[in-house]
Design a protein around this nucleic acid. Structure first.
Lengths: 383, 383
DNA sequence: GTTAATAATGATGCACTCCTTCGTAAGTCA
DNA sequence: TGACTTACGAAGGAGTGCATCATTATTAAC
């Protein structure tokens, strides 16, 4: 009720225009009648709204559907190619970029390996290269891009500085948003990677149906994010979800159980170690199974805390280890059943390694929506 | 954006009416011009809105202000006495009732002691008596009451059953909402007591300015509640905030440190034991201070988990022990500073023992607002 | 006591948005 | 080719909000 406001007749038109845009973005091309039905407006009114939106460049006409009875209806769709969005995943070992249209449909993706100890300037240069190649792959230039949304490991400030980053030591203290703004002449937003992955999960993953979700970002690093009331919870200082910092949660070192298991061949690369243990556990190796048990024990402590505190509808296991959800979920469920009041639905993520960069695109879309739905914020020209 | 909808012209009027009601509820009597200024509408339009609201019985005129230059303006106010609200705090040792008008202004309060082992039927009878005497005290009858909002210890289901209650053993399994509905011929809502106290704190307490808050409900029982984005977070199964159930949080038995301190005289009643320890600690008794340290150690573990997870703007210490905030807050701050990324503002509640019953009234007001702001929900007749 | 200043009131006309209705147009099907 | 179906477009009407202006009630100053 805080934000509920009436106003002018033009405000009403604005609301109806936005509802129409929302309907068009949600579903593919729609006829006027279909739009009217969805928004609750009458057809003539809808016509006027759509005419206006076409004039503003937000909506365009598409060829009518074939083979329908009666006079073929004009069809309209959101003009998703008025501008483009770039998503970035700046991780310890990889930099990923994605190019998407205003609907968040991904048109191109690129990836470049880096190392956790890559110096800052070199890493920033790699980011620029990755984005440039992604734009080239999609046949666009940076001038076509409206928003760059970047996700990175670590605790970030609301303004987009890296407050603390254990995974990329040199990252700590960097004004990432500032540096990216120097690099890209458009709107830049920066967010924690786990929260972006959670967003992707809520937008296109396994929890599109739920509005209260605990997202576990598990892999070589442990992270978490919360979706509350349908929104990714950011926290007052943009530091929500950092339960790994609590010693009692036994989270920080939990992956060690999997990465230092005695059955791992000595020449295995660190990137594959945990995978080896998980695969062995799937095959029934008792030592690996014991390691998994210990890992899940630790994982469950922090997860229980989150579940007890938030009583979410769903817990999602995402991140690198989610590929082994078949091994991890049953014991995790078992632990949660014992410690929680109500066992939430426990699911595995269906998004792969692109979850963060996908979430970054979704974050950019949300940012655009926010601008769209907030009067007084100037929009990039759409025509 | 999910709930953002345009619509009809009547929808616009509805929005403006609700904005007007909101403005009138927030501030005392307002003139037409003041209302217009607040809502952004023009004076003539405001007039029409107010006329309609007067006709519907939501708004009434009050005598004009004296001693103003120019023609005195008519003043209008929300007709808070169109109906009444009852708040209930059903605790282990006390039942409290409050009667308030539709603005949430409390007109009468009553209290009746009970015991944790009071049988269910007897306790329900006590509830009925407490409410009856409260109504009598306020000069109203149950027919004047639109909503009864009840808070009680324990985990409740979304439907208002007691899922589990450690403090009142016989309470577990009771369909509290159902029994109260049999008792009172009006709308009945049931909520966890800590969440109600948090709501009171957000509405009239120390955190009116913050939208992300961790509320610690500390006393002989430990509870917690979260305010996220300005809303009290309830959880999918209405079981949010139950971090005390997590063994690692060391919360459940934390009050024992204060209640079983060796310096407490043997004939002290259990209700006063912790208070004795806290008072001794304030006076500098080393044994009491050590007990307080141990208590805060435990309290800080669960609090750290919540702060790390949610990154709230404020942590509020409420409940019975908040009277000793001067003793508890400094060491709690110290612990949190060490374990958290960003130390939130740590404050003491200013509401006393009536925090839950006050919060129940605020919950009833919120429920009424919800009905007001949700079309299609029939309202109690207001005229 | 009279007059000027101030601020609210009430009435009028206008602009905008949405709705209903109806005749017309453009397809499919028999 | 004609019947049927569906969409289009235009016209008229109702509801809502705004700007404007003459009127009214009160205070302040002379």
């Amino acid at each position: 009720m805080a934000t509920l406001r009436g106003g002018d007749l033009s405000r009403l038109r604005q609301l109806n225009s936005l509802t129409a845009i929302g309907a068009l973005r949600g579903a593919g091309p729609l006829t006027l009648s279909a739009l009217a039905k969805r928004t609750g407006l009458s057809r003539p009114s809808m016509k006027e709204v759509v005419d206006e939106l076409m004039q503003l460049g937000w909506v365009e006409e598409t060829p009518p559907a074939q083979g329908t009875i009666g006079r073929p209806a004009r069809r309209y769709r959101f003009r998703a190619s008025s501008g483009y969005l770039v998503g970035l995943d700046i991780g310890g070992h990889n930099i990923r970029a994605a190019l998407a249209n205003l609907n968040g449909e991904i048109l191109a993706e690129t990836r470049q390996p880096v190392r956790p100890d890559t110096p800052v300037e070199e890493r920033l240069a790699a980011i620029e290269r990755t984005v440039a190649s992604c734009l080239a792959l999609g046949g666009k230039t940076i001038a076509d891009v409206w928003i760059v949304a970047a996700g990175t490991i670590g605790v970030i400030t609301p303004e987009g500085r890296i407050h603390y980053c254990a995974a990329i030591p040199a990252w700590t203290g960097l004004d990432l948003a500032g540096r990216l703004r120097e690099m890209f002449p458009c709107d830049v937003v920066v967010e924690n990677d786990s929260r972006l992955a959670a967003r992707a999960e809520a937008q296109r993953g396994t929890v599109r149906d739920a509005s209260d979700v605990v997202f576990l970002h598990v892999g070589r690093r442990m992270g978490a994010a919360l979706i509350i009331g349908g929104n990714v919870h950011r926290g007052f200082g943009a530091a929500a979800g950092e339960i790994a910092m609590l010693p009692q949660a036994q989270w920080f070192d939990a992956p060690e159980h999997l990465q230092n298991c005695s059955i791992i061949p000595p020449d295995t690369s660190p990137a594959d170690a945990a995978g080896y243990t998980l695969a062995a556990a799937r095959a029934g190796d008792p030592v690996a199974l014991a390691a998994v048990e210990r890992y899940v024990d630790d994982l469950a402590v922090g997860t229980s805390a989150m579940v007890l505190l938030l009583d979410p509808q769903v817990v999602v296991l995402g991140g690198g280890f989610s590929r082994s959800a078949d091994v991890l979920l049953p014991p995790l469920r078992e632990r949660l059943r014992r410690s929680c009041i109500r066992l939430p639905d426990v699911r595995a993520s269906t998004l792969g390694d692109e979850c963060v960069v996908t979430g970054a695109i979704d974050y950019a879309v949300a940012h655009l929506d926010h601008q769209l739905f907030t009067p007084d914020v100037p929009l990039p020209t759409s025509r």
